[in-house]
């Protein structure tokens, strides 16, 4: 793929239901939580569902969610913690079945961008974890998958080759430059989809144990410009679609940065992004 224009981008944030986004001005004053998705879909084309990490997705709830969004809108759903962080040896296959069942409405409606497999920092490239990951990917085969590593031991050509062979997306992460963390890369392992997650670069808060500190970061314009350039010149040329999500949700920084990056990708360099900026790329 050589024409960046042929790549369809889905930009959004990790989660959308944050009360503090009202204070930051992203949602109008008095917005009820139940109306936040209605406001969100006017600005972005995709969202990462965080809550599926906390609880197994339920098909009826997914079905209702599908009905609320326009046809072109996509969901990226985080794989449930019982399959990534709290794996139980003899139970996880059952959990995969339950997860697949919960995802059914999204798949049927063509609204699933991918399943995001976010692995914990202690998930090193050891024999046990390698075997588990391979088995997990087998069990989830047939679904669009993106794998996010949080440990740098996975930076390995063999890993990337295997992901390529399986047509599984490697998540490019933007996170603090701390020892042991997966580095900032710009890699495409799946010609169907590239994926970037912006966690913020708050090195001080990263291991604080508090999400409000860990993801409290406002990307500087220069940082976003560098990413826009890499997306255009590297990632968009190699994949048919791209998912770009901002996880620095604290104080509404995620939607602000996401909109700015979208502007940069559209070459709207001047001025500040209004919240209701047209976003479709």
């Amino acid at each position: 793929m050589e024409d960046p224009g042929a790549c369809r981008l889905y930009t959004g944030t990790s989660g959308y239901s944050y009360g503090e986004w009202i204070d930051s001005g992203f949602y109008p004053d008095g917005t009820h939580s139940s109306n936040m998705l209605d406001c969100y879909i006017k600005v972005f084309q995709a969202v990462e569902l965080n809550y599926t990490w906390y609880q197994m997705p339920k098909a009826p709830a997914m079905e209702r969610m599908c009905e609320k969004v326009p046809e072109h809108f996509k969901f990226s759903a985080k794989l449930t913690r019982t399959l990534t962080h709290e794996i139980q040896k003899n139970l996880w296959q059952k959990e995969v079945l339950a997860f697949r069942h919960g995802m059914e409405p999204l798949i049927r409606a063509g609204k699933l961008l991918c399943i995001l497999i976010q692995l914990p920092p202690y998930f090193e490239r050891s024999a046990d974890f390698r075997h588990y990951l391979a088995a997990l990917l087998d069990e989830l085969s047939g679904l669009p998958l993106a794998v996010e590593f949080r440990h740098d031991s996975w930076v390995n050509d063999k890993v990337f080759s295997e992901l390529e062979r399986r047509r599984i997306t490697l998540v490019n992460v933007d996170e603090p430059d701390l020892p042991g963390l997966f580095p900032r890369l710009c890699a495409v392992t799946n010609p169907d989809l590239f994926y970037i997650r912006f966690h913020g670069r708050n090195a001080g808060g990263w291991r604080s144990g508090s999400m409000q500190k860990q993801f409290d970061y406002d990307y500087a314009d220069q940082e976003l410009k560098e990413w826009a350039e890499r997306v255009k010149t590297e990632l968009m040329l190699e994949a048919a679609a791209g998912g770009i999500f901002f996880n620095n949700h604290v104080r509404g920084q995620a939607p602000k940065n996401a909109l700015r990056l979208m502007d940069l990708l559209l070459k709207k360099d001047g001025g500040k992004t209004p919240w209701n900026a047209p976003s479709f790329i």
Partner: peptide
Amino acid sequence: LGEYIVAPGDEEAFLAP
């Protein structure tokens, strides 16, 4: 054992069945 998150606005549909 377990957990359940009922999304805001989803209460009526959640209870219905």
